[in-house]
Amino acid sequence: MSSPHPTAHVDYLLAVADDALVNAQRLGWWISRAPQLEEDVALANIGLDQLGQARALLAHAGQVEGAGRSEDDLAYLRDERDFRNVHLVEREQTDFGVAMARLLMVAAWQSHLYAALRGSTDATLAAVAAKAVKEVAYHLDHAGRWVVRLGDGTEESHLRMQAALDAEWPHLEELFDGSFLDPALVADGVAVDPATLREPVLSTILAVVEEATLAAPRVRPAVGGGRTGRHTEQMGYLLAEMQHLTRSHPGATW
């Protein structure tokens, strides 16, 4: 058995971290725009959890890499092609139904992923996962309750929630594609093969979809590529906004 390449380890950590970071970046948009003030508070909590996970994982990725890069170096100074997040989290979302459909998928994925990563042989990753698994359980609960209320609410909300689910669903499969992953990382017990999470994640999501009186979308998976840095066009704008101030003042501290 060959030992995993060090960059493979870093890339894996970045994949998990970037999903959380980009998800937090999109969630931040909602603060002051939620349907009810109580929801502004709830979405901010979820965004803060995601940001916290991203920071811990990016800091760890920087240490494993050993090139002296900090969490901020990795968040602000990498270019689009070096980001490892899936398309699911990077696309714009300005409809509450879309936001909840996506949160349901991301939280279901992260719940099973972090639960498995608690046993990672990378002790720091295992510790981050052990803390995060509790946080994402709450995110899953929150998204699930909203999807059920919107799906089984009014006629209008049912249609809108179904449309939101249909729009997000093609991007679900990318989460389970482990082709970017060095098999040695899985063999060493550092990483989890994403394909093994497909069934449990889908079953978690489908239970909610059913309770919400919605139909599981019959759509073909979209072509992914985020894990190898092939993103949607929206990713460039997201990063331009997120990074511009930091990059305008090289070397400055904030």
Partner: peptide
């Protein structure tokens, strides 16, 4: 106090608002 559509959401909103 807070506003919520039902008890389940009220409990969760309370957690988010009053135990941050």
């Amino acid at each position: 106090s807070l506003h919520a559509p039902d008890a389940e959401m009220a409990l969760r909103n309370a957690r988010d608002l009053y135990t941050r």
